[in-house]
Amino acid sequence: MSLVSVQNISKSYWRDSQEIRVLTNISFDIAEGDFLGLMGPSGSGKTTLLNLIAGIDKPTKGSITVSSTDISKLNESELAKWRARHIGFVFQFYNLMPVLTAFENVELPLLLSKLSKKERREHVEFALQIVGLGDRVHHYPKQLSGGQEQRVAIARAIVTDPTVLVADEPTGDLDKVSAEEILKLLERLNTEFKKTIIMVTHDPRAAERAHKIRHLDKGELS
């Protein structure tokens, strides 16, 4: 049984009275523990598709089921709670809170849980150890390199043990060495910790790490 099921998804935007179709009749499934790479040229709709799966945008048509929940039927409030529980998001530009330390940034999603302070600390320390930043807990984002910032962002994404880890161009802002480290980390999360990962990238070397690759072109899967 698939963990993520995308059925006949279409997404359009309206500019004045003109409809701009971004995605057209997309259907595919992702099994639990999979590592899917979404590739395609700029403007092909891959980030839009990722956003729909992550529940931060809504399809114009079709349905998306994640772990038996049809998220296209959830309202904003329900979606927020669902994301907190099921989605770990890794952004291209890390998007860490500059006023918070690495520890506090990773702890942020746990503030929405009922965990005690002690439990939160244990979870955060564990997540930071996994990404290899156990010695940088009190550093602020500006005191870290790009690669380290992205590793903190990954720790933030996995600290709640989400159902799906989605990554939007996670190596897009990194040098080769750092990008390689991040890709190794994602690979480890998939193989060692059995995390289901969906990664958008236009970098063929990054896509090589995925078990499956789907190509998008002009809003359609090829």
Binding site: A80, A84, R85, F89, L112, R156
Partner: peptide
């Protein structure tokens, strides 16, 4: 605005 969007992505409510 971008940070608020990130917080929303993490599950923070209105």
């Amino acid at each position: 605005i971008r940070e608020y969007a990130v917080l929303k992505t993490l599950g923070f409510s209105s």
